[in-house]
Design a protein around this nucleic acid. Structure first.
Length: 497
RNA sequence: GGCCCGUUGGUCAAGUGGCUAAGACGCUGCCCUUUCACGGCGGAAUCGAGAGUUCGAUUCUCUCACGGGCUACCA
């Protein structure tokens, strides 16, 4: 085995990229890149029934979106250890299954699922831990072969089970948790390494692949801790070196306190969903990189490159972390403001998607739209889709005037302000600037001796049908003068005549 | 039930045998301001419990409690 650092991210293509998986991928990638090592993606698709059509594509696509790259993966068919899909590596597994069978370290088992459940239930009824019962105890090899033939004759399909030596103890120095020791008897007896459909099981296939692909470090969720002794048994049986293991704490659902699961509908937990809402990839990486890992200093905003430089696997947290949506929103806000130029087209596109702006205007009026977005309050939003409701009124639609607003308008003060404003606004040139509007409003304040809301509200209502919102002079600069005049005329017509 | 892992403010977390126990999100007060947001300055809030070791434990040991993970022909 070379001493090159090689790590892998090995998803099963059963769904889109989950936050938890993304974190595993990110930390493996950071570990590799920090150490000048290699990052491999392998698709663990041995459960034919659960694979979904687009799973693999979606995984790679979203990883790429997050900014990760890889040295070997199914999309690089000429890479050294190809293929990188377990379903295409059956021959490799067969070699070692045969070897274990030949050495007597594994055997064929023909028990039906009914038998297995019955066994398990009986054990549970007797208050015993479920434990596989070896069915060939005391038989010679020949006698066992004879049994095989007998079962085959009955048309039964075998699985291959690994023969576990219950007396052994498996121990390793975990990169994140320190020393862990688990007795072989805890794995529950002889376990299946090859299923009846000929596919290897996960615990067997990972070992063969990790060894063949020269994986040096395995960084994964700590839900795999109890799989580790099983995997170590295979390394041992085949005489292979064991990689270094690191079991990272899990991300848990803040509401249920349980491991974030695909069935939790109360949290958005697929990278894709955040992507659709307009979260920035840098923000996702930034947030995920800080869940279960902490840097040395006090900063919170980091680029992928900064993470690469700082990464230190010793700073991985031991305790589970709750997923804090609010902090993600804040981090995303920070990134949007940092990269505003880059995000602007995406923001404009949100307005198009919402039907507020035509495709043609999105291009033709891009500069104006950028100003609208700025004035509408882009600095306060958590993700790009939020700009739609912020900009909608009054830039693209007007609200209805409420009874409250009518009162502001029809008081003596309100009428006076409205009249002055209407006249002085009309007198301003069409290309007046925010400062010009401000001057006019100040002049009304001085002349009529009105200030505060009694001054601003009638003006706001007259021009925007709102009593609050972004800085009014700045909005006025962006409005079309004829349209504002028409709006005011309509207000006068309906409420002030 | 068994085995394994964990426990610092609401959340993410730093940290150490002796410190006023960092920082960030959130919450909150004040300022800015026509309003909202932004921004600025403050504030409240944490070492799960009990024994031990020690001159001294948040830090080391043990027990307990609580939380989580696993316990498949899923990965």
């Amino acid at each position: 085995m070379s001493d090159k650092i090689r790590v892998r991210y090995a998803p099963s293509p059963t769904g889109h990229l989950h936050i938890g998986n993304a974190r595993t991928a990110i930390f493996n990638w950071l570990f590799a890149r920090h150490n000048g090592g290699e990052f491999i993606i392998r698709i663990e698709d041995t459960d034919l029934a659960r694979n979904i059509e687009d799973g693999e594509r979606s995984q790679l696509d979203n990883l790429k979106w997050l900014g990760l790259d890889w040295d070997e993966a199914p999309d690089k068919p000429n890479a050294k250890y190809a293929p990188y899909r377990q379903s295409e590596r059956k021959d490799s597994y067969q070699v070692y299954i045969d070897e274990l069978l030949a050495k007597g370290l594994a055997y064929k088992s023909y028990k039906t699922s009914e038998q297995l459940t019955a066994e398990r239930e009986a054990q549970q009824a007797a208050k015993q831990a479920p434990h596989y019962v070896y069915e060939y105890e005391g038989l010679t090899n020949e006698e066992r072969e004879a049994k095989y033939a007998e079962f085959e004759a009955q048309g039964l399909k075998p699985v291959v089970r690994f023969r576990v030596d219950d007396d052994k103890v498996y121990a390793w120095d975990d990169i994140v948790k320190g020393r862990i020791e688990i007795g072989a008897k805890e794995v529950g007896g002889d376990w299946v390494i090859q299923k009846a459909d000929g596919m290897p099981t996960y615990n067997f296939a990972v070992v063969v692949d990790d060894h063949l692909m020269e994986i040096s470090h395995v960084l994964r969720g700590d839900d795999h801790v109890s799989n580790t002794p099983k995997q170590m048994m295979i390394y041992e049986a085949l005489g292979w070196d064991v990689p270094k293991f690191g079991h990272m704490a899990l991300i848990i659902n803040a509401e249920t306190g349980k491991k974030l699961s695909k069935r939790d509908n109360n949290v958005l937990q697929f990278v894709e969903q955040y992507r659709e809402l307009g979260y920035q990839p840098q923000a996702m990486v930034n947030f995920i990189g800080l869940l279960g890992w902490s840097p040395v200093g006090e900063d919170e905003i980091f680029s992928l490159q900064e993470f690469v430089e700082m990464f230190d696997e010793k700073r991985l947290t031991k305790a589970n972390a709750k997923f804090d949506q609010k902090k993600l929103e804040w981090i995303n806000n920070q990134w949007m403001r940092r990269d505003k130029e880059k995000v602007m087209p995406q923001l404009i596109n949100e307005l198009v998607q919402a039907g507020l702006v035509s495709e043609a205007d999105a291009v033709a009026k891009a500069d104006w739209l950028a100003k609208v977005i700025e004035v509408a309050g882009v600095d306060g939003i958590s993700y790009t889709k939020e700009i739609v409701e912020l900009a909608r009124k009054p830039f693209f639609e007007l609200s209805d005037i409420t009874p409250d607003m009518v009162e502001w308008l029809t008081s003596d003060e309100g009428r006076a302000v409205f009249n002055a404003w209407e006249a002085r606004y009309a007198a301003l040139p069409a290309d007046a600037k925010a400062a010009d509007y401000m001057d006019v409003i100040r002049s009304i304040q001085t002349d009529l001796e009105v200030k505060g809301r009694p001054l601003w509200n009638p003006i706001r209502i007259a021009t925007t049908h709102e009593v609050q919102g972004p800085n009014l002079p700045e909005m006025l600069e962006l409005f079309d003068k004829d349209q504002v005049l028409a709006t005011m005329a309509a207000v006068r017509e309906q409420y002030l005549n």
